[in-house]
């Protein structure tokens, strides 16, 4: 049976992208933030809108706040992300001192669109945080990423996370989701 070359290409791309995302998760969990920052494009946009309980008829249009104009958990560029890294590396950022144990899981990865230079991905995330002793958070939801081809590798251009909580059950968001 002849294997369709296009299918093979697709599988290879998917493998490559998943590998990139797992590598990124490893960098974050190992707190290798400087290397991680290199994976973000200079025009990187990071947003985590708030989720809302709304009536059935409004669910498609009003169940989250709008990045770009309304209050979100995060809605920022690389400059601000870099500031957060600087803060994490001061050693006096009490919210992460002693440092938390964090594991990032990425799953259900799908390539939604591929225009040759950029790909849009849909996935699910699970971020587990344990700190001090019994303080444990599970942050779970949907993730939409845009990756850009840069030479032999990729850069993350845009990341939107939809956290499955309206009231945040973690006391803060002092880690990257």
């Amino acid at each position: 049976m002849a294997v369709n070359e296009k299918v093979l290409e697709k599988i290879a791309l998917r493998f490559e992208i998943a590998d990139f995302l797992y590598h990124e998760a490893d960098l974050l969990d190992a707190r290798h933030y400087e290397e991680w920052l290199d994976l973000l494009s200079e025009d990187y946009q990071y947003s985590v809108p708030l989720r809302l309980n709304v009536a059935f008829a409004d669910n498609d249009t009003k169940s989250q706040t709008l990045a770009g104009s309304e209050i979100c958990w995060f809605d920022e560029d690389k400059e601000t992300v870099r500031k957060r890294v600087d803060q994490l590396m001061t050693g006096r950022h009490w919210a992460e001192e002693p440092v938390s144990r964090v594991s990032h899981f990425v799953t259900n990865i799908r390539i939604v669109e591929d225009n040759g230079s950029e790909v849009n991905l849909s996935s699910r995330f699970l971020v587990y945080r344990n700190r001090v002793s019994d303080e444990t958070d599970f942050l779970v939801g949907r993730r939409n990423d845009t990756l850009r081809r840069v030479g032999e590798s990729w850069q993350i251009v845009r990341r939107e996370l939809l956290l499955d909580q309206t009231v945040l059950l973690a006391k803060n968001l002092s880690i990257f989701m």
Binding site: L50, E70, C72
Partner: peptide, 11 residues
């Protein structure tokens, strides 16, 4: 006020 109220639980 901006649309969107931050709501979170603290111990």
């Amino acid at each position: 006020v901006f649309h969107g109220v931050h709501k979170w639980r603290i111990k």
